[in-house]
Nucleic acid binder design. Structure first.
Lengths: 197, 197
DNA sequence: GATGAAACTTGGGCACG
DNA sequence: CGTGCCCAAGTTTCATC
């Protein structure tokens, strides 16, 4: 399977912002032709990096619902069951399972009766405790920067297989394949910054 | 502004599953023609119900990153600042603010040094405490079932089978099962609003 | 790149409330 | 009369070569 490069990351970013953008517009942005962009997007889909094309829906606009975050503390033997059960619930927008087995659910409910809603979808005996936070607001971040997707050392361009080094330089998180590239980048940055002063 | 009906909900569901579906396919599913579907989608965008067209990206496939959930406990005077600051961070995938001012951040980080990462983006003095949970897995639910978008009357709670009435009250779109519930809601709203003045 | 095919948009006209 | 829909032509965009 072909590796990812900077161009793929740019395409991902552009699509994340607006998945309806014409291929020609993407092509101009990344310096390719529309067919080449098409090929890359197809490949990204095959690789499972693009999981699908979808819309962001403001569910709270649809009815008088309440967005909540629910922390579940399942009994250790039932973590998978609880995870599967909540994932099947209709009102769910996101599920997170911690390595400690705790489960956090992001849901938008038609009323605030969380207990009866939970009871309708899963066996409450498999949950030792739960905690509900009503949300004042929330954002799902769609704009993803190139560094957020960074896969290559920003200095030598080599792919960072595992490990790697990160450092915050000028407020930006950068990733390097090795400490020497990091040193080089930092000194280059400092030279540049000093020159500006 | 036009009201929402069952057809709009079907369109939302179809687009949520696959936003690249041709209008003709959607049109066949809901019994309309492609231009009519186009009109409705434009309207849903104007109303802010469709917030945008985007892709689902499997970020953990991109490199050996670690997904975490971070609970922040900001000092009460800095809640907005902290929320704004984390929203600007590159590695963020979601932010939630509870009515109690607590903030939960969903991020995918290149390493596990959360503290330095947080310090790079926000003033740690505005956070009294924070708690990190490394995630074993997580899902954002994209496929939304028909009932997931089902409408309930915001007054009497009855499910709205077909027809139904919507109105914009105080800038918010609300849905009712019948005009009488709408009247009741509107008068209740106006009483409430007058009381504030 | 260029071409054929498919999808989207536009404008006119009709039906319904 | 306004709103929403259909029909048909014109234009853009996409996939294949």
């Amino acid at each position: 399977m072909r590796d990812l490069d900077e161009t793929d990351l740019e395409i991902l970013e552009l699509l994340t912002e607006n998945a309806r953008r014409p291929y020609k517009e993407i092509a101009d942005n990344v310096g390719l032709t529309p067919p080449a962009v098409s090929d890359r997007i197809s490949r990204l889909e095959e690789q499972g990096i693009i999981q699908g094309f979808t819309i962001d829906v403001d569910r709270e606009k649809l009815r008088g619902e309440t967005a909540v975050l629910i922390e579940l503390d399942p009994v250790p033997t039932a973590v998978d069951d609880v995870y599967a059960a909540v994932t099947d619930l209709e009102e769910i927008e996101g599920v997170f399972e911690g390595v400690d087995g705790s489960i956090v659910v992001h849901a938008t409910l038609p009323d605030s009766n969380v207990r009866s809603w939970l009871a309708s979808g899963l066996n409450l005996e498999s949950v030792r405790n739960y905690d509900v936070t009503v949300l004042a607001r929330s954002d799902r971040i769609v704009g993803v920067s190139a560094t957020g997707f960074g896969l290559e050392c920003v200095v030598c361009g080599k792919e960072i297989v595992d490990g790697g080094v990160t450092a915050t330089v000028g407020g930006e998180l950068k990733t390097f394949c090795c400490p020497s590239c990091e040193d080089r980048y930092v000194s280059r940055y400092e030279t540049h910054r000093d020159a500006l002063e």
